[in-house]
Nucleic acid binder design. Structure first.
Lengths: 180, 180
DNA sequence: CCTTAACTTCACAAATTTCTGAAGTCAGCG
DNA sequence: CGCTGACTTCAGAAATTTGTGAAGTTAAGG
């Protein structure tokens, strides 16, 4: 049922550490799948969610396409699609590895919260639609007023979220230091 | 292709007003479908989004199942499912009409923003998952730290959103008055 | 330049979601 | 108490979304 993209076990049959340290692959996988499931529930595409969770849990905060494919047991095509989506929404950035034509995908640890609230673009589009709605219905009609109120809320939200994220950046620096 | 649940045009062939005032059904429909499409893009189920948008644009802020079915040209079953979902997430409330066994579904105009941020429950569940992740990976590992930071962000967000909504309620009262 | 590793794109099969028609259920009314 | 109107539930058809294999592309390395 799945195309067997490289095995998870070593030839000795023992479950082996993935990178340098003593990570338990099963526990990691459990977390990855669990968190991904919640992202899916919140509306993210399944494969994108799994890739993102895997990156978040990875040691280096970055993995290559091949590593992702192996860990998640999916085809290169699936990884490619997921990564395309994730970089479009700025949740992941791609970087060329120095030598080889291998690419790595990275969660910038901070950059991705921004994405979460960087619904800016989205909020703007919603604003557009709602404004048209108010016009269509007429600003004096009950429906028009209801939509105008929704619009006002979104505009408020947009401003407040910006401020909130600024405060978070400070808070974050205070707690975790300036590290990337 | 669709089961023809009551017509949108009158027998005379003219497009007619829907309720008491001069709403243009086509314009309303255009707004409803446009806004619904954006909600869908943001992850909401299609039918739920359409029903919600229709209610938002409606004159009374409330419609019966039959009215929704007619306006959206869908079966009673579809309306039923959408409304079930919407009330589960507190975006719409159901009310019994005085006399008849007919029910109406209402957007409370304010209540629904709450739902938007009433990701409270959701944020709590995410927190759970992330905490488990930190434990699984080990708080000292890079992955564990990355997840711990994400967790901290969500906890911050939860608190701030609560405050934000309180401020909005004041703002709203200031601009629009206390009306429901 | 030719080879080859490392993605990407695309057509299609599989899985999932969404909506419908039909068969309930439940209360109000006569 | 049975009828009827107004939902609700459910099985299955239709549409949509996902993920795969296979066939490109592109650029590093010989």
């Amino acid at each position: 049922m799945n195309g067997d993209y490289t095995r998870r076990m070593t030839e000795s049959g023992a479950v082996e550490r993935e990178q340098g340290n003593g990570r338990d692959p099963d526990a990691v996988s459990a977390f990855v799948e669990g968190f991904a499931a919640q992202l899916v529930e919140a509306g993210m595409q399944r494969m994108a969610a799994r890739v993102f969770a895997a990156l978040l849990a990875s040691d280096a905060g970055a993995l290559s396409s091949a590593e992702l494919g192996e860990q998640l047991q999916v085809s290169p095509a699936a990884v490619s699609g997921a990564v395309r989506y994730l970089s479009q929404v700025h949740m992941v950035s791609r970087e060329r590895e120095p030598g080889s034509r291998r690419e790595r995908y990275r969660v910038h640890s901070d950059q991705w919260y921004e994405a979460l609230t960087n619904r800016d673009a989205i909020l703007k589009r919603w604003g557009q639609t709602l404004r048209v709605g108010v016009d269509s219905l007429g600003a004096e009609t009950p429906g028009g007023q209801r939509i105008a109120e929704t619009l006002a809320f979104f505009e408020y939200l947009e401003g407040e979220l910006t401020k909130l994220m600024e405060r978070w950046r400070e808070e974050r620096a205070r707690i975790f230091g300036e590290s990337s």
